[in-house]
């Protein structure tokens, strides 16, 4: 009896989470402009979307920023996480605190802090400032993700590898790298998510020349209901589903390949 209750509750929450999205997706195929009633199946909003250059530009920019900032943040952050794991240095505590606090600061404070420093340094707001900002808020998350996932690895295995004849290079290749990849991939995905999702910071630090998705949608929505936005959201959602499926497959294959290498006799 309680089992039904539990499943029901979970189901309800998921319905709550997905209903608005589901609505968007359904309406992207709805002939009706206002989505109040079903007027018929169509893909016209998708075709309109494809011809709407400004939306496509904005979406493209957001994706570009997300991929670039995720990658840069992952590189810098992974290096920092490895250093934090393996070395002890003065100021380690200070750095940890800085990372921790950066993570918790609300977006709005981060946003104006970045605005202030950019203007003080004389930057023009645009692609570069946007990129720097996204890297900045992703960085602490990367460090924490990689650090905590790698912390659970028994550090004695590096000595074991050395004991068995692996110098630094071989140890890196056969031990550190394979174990680090899942953590690094997770960090990259997290950064990508944070970047794509961001509204507040982007609103402050981008310039008129570089349009991004949230701001584009914002201006469209202010004017009125825009069915192309439904189509766009659906497309974005589909892309993310695809990316995650790929990541999942990669993980499965990654684990399987090491099992293929030897024989049983």
């Amino acid at each position: 009896m309680t089992r039904i209750f539990r499943i029901g509750f979970i189901g309800l929450i998921f319905a709550y989470i997905y209903a608005p999205l589901g609505l968007l997706i359904v309406n992207s195929f709805n002939l009706s402009r206002y989505g109040n009633s079903w007027k018929g199946l169509t893909t016209q909003w998708y075709s309109k979307l494809l011809t709407n250059q400004s939306i496509l530009d904005a979406a493209g920019h957001s994706l570009m920023i997300a991929v670039t900032s995720a990658t840069v943040a992952t590189v810098i952050g992974t290096l920092a996480a490895v250093a934090l794991l393996r070395f002890n240095f003065r100021g380690k505590g200070a750095m940890s605190s800085l990372i921790f606090v950066s993570m918790l600061t609300p977006d709005i404070v981060t946003a104006i802090a970045l605005l202030v420093i950019f203007l003080s340094l004389g930057f023009t707001l645009g692609f570069l400032t946007l990129l720097i900002s996204h890297i900045t808020f992703c960085l602490p998350f990367v460090i924490v993700t990689v650090f905590s996932r790698m912390k659970s690895i028994d550090s004695a295995i590096f000595e074991a590898a050395q004991d068995l004849g692996a110098g630094d290079g071989l140890s890196f290749r056969y031990i550190l790298l394979p174990l680090a990849i899942p953590a690094v991939a997770a960090a990259w995905l997290l950064s990508f998510t944070l970047s794509i999702d961001d509204v507040i910071v982007s609103a402050f630090v981008t310039g008129p020349g570089y349009d991004i998705l949230p701001l584009k949608v914002y201006s469209m929505v202010r004017v009125g209901v825009s069915p192309e936005v439904n189509a766009l959201s659906t497309v974005l959602f589909a892309i993310s589903l695809f990316l995650v499926a790929v990541a999942h497959f990669l993980q499965k294959y990654g684990l399987a390949s090491s099992a293929k290498q030897q024989s049983t006799c």
Binding site: I153, I157, E159, A160, I175, P178, S258, Q262
Partner: peptide, 8 residues
């Protein structure tokens, strides 16, 4: 033991 967790 320090066994490599990602290897058989």
């Amino acid at each position: 033991y320090a066994l490599f967790p990602h290897m058989t």
